[in-house]
Structure formats: structure tokens, C-alpha cells
Amino acid sequence: MTIRIERPLSPHLQIYRWTLTMALSIVHRATGVALYFGTLLLVWWLIAVSSGPGAYAAVQSFTASWIGRLIAFGYTWALMHHMLSGVRHLVWDLGYGFKPAEREWLTRAALIGGILLTVLLWIVAYAIGGGR
């Protein structure tokens, strides 16, 4: 039996003022969950390519639909954001970037960089894919 010691509790999450790093911490986890289920699409696509023209046509009709495009766009952003946000975590793991200015800069860079990379990739994708 452990003896319970009465200690002051730390305040709950909703007590704190929202900060960018706090919000992005939750976004990192949320994009991770989205990518977890998004991997189903990647595997569906791989199985379809290996199965034949019929199965592949089903994937293509999905990715060509507006909902399919939206999911693919969302997947791209989730991947790019999670990657840059993850690089930020690797920087922290190495012991750098903990000062307030550095911390804010890294977080802003991950947020803006993720959006920019996503838009850039889709511009290139439409430029290449549209020509085929």
C-alpha cells in the first residue's frame, strides 16, 4: 500500500492562456492521427496498382472526386506540417531552441513552412499531372 500524500494539484489545461507552442503541440498530435488513418489510402492505392486496371480505376475515380482531392490535399498538409513540426522536436531533443524567441521562431517556421510546402507541391503536381 502506498500512502497518498496531499499535494497541491497543477491547474487544468483550460486555466492557461493559449500559446502558439501549446496549440501546435496538439496540432502535431492531430496530424499524426490523421496520417495514421491516411496510410490506409496509401496502402489501398498500392494494392490497387498491383491488382489491375479495374481496382486502379476505382482509386482514380476517388482521387479525382472533390472529396478525394480534399482528402489528398489534407493528407499532404498533415504530412508536411507533421514533418516540419517533428524537425522542431528533433532540434529540442538535441537541446537547442528552448529560448522564448527561438521556440516561437521554430513553431512559426513549422506552421508557415508546412502550408507553403503543401501549396508548392500541389502547384507542381497540377503542372506535371495536367500535362499527362
Partner: peptide, 27 residues
């Protein structure tokens, strides 16, 4: 995580190569 950072550029290139191909081409 580090492995995926190294693989992201080749993966993006592969995806771009595959865009708009039919099943036979993609396979």
C-alpha cells in the same frame, strides 16, 4: 523520423513521376 526526413524527397519525386499514369504505367 530521421529515416522519413531522408526519404521524403525521393518519395515526392516518385509521386510526381506517377501522377496521371494509367495502371499499366504506374505498375
Amino acid at each position: 523520423a530521421v529515416a522519413m526526413i531522408l526519404l521524403i524527397v525521393p518519395m515526392v519525386v516518385v509521386m510526381m513521376i506517377l501522377l496521371g499514369r494509367n495502371q499499366a504505367g504506374a505498375a
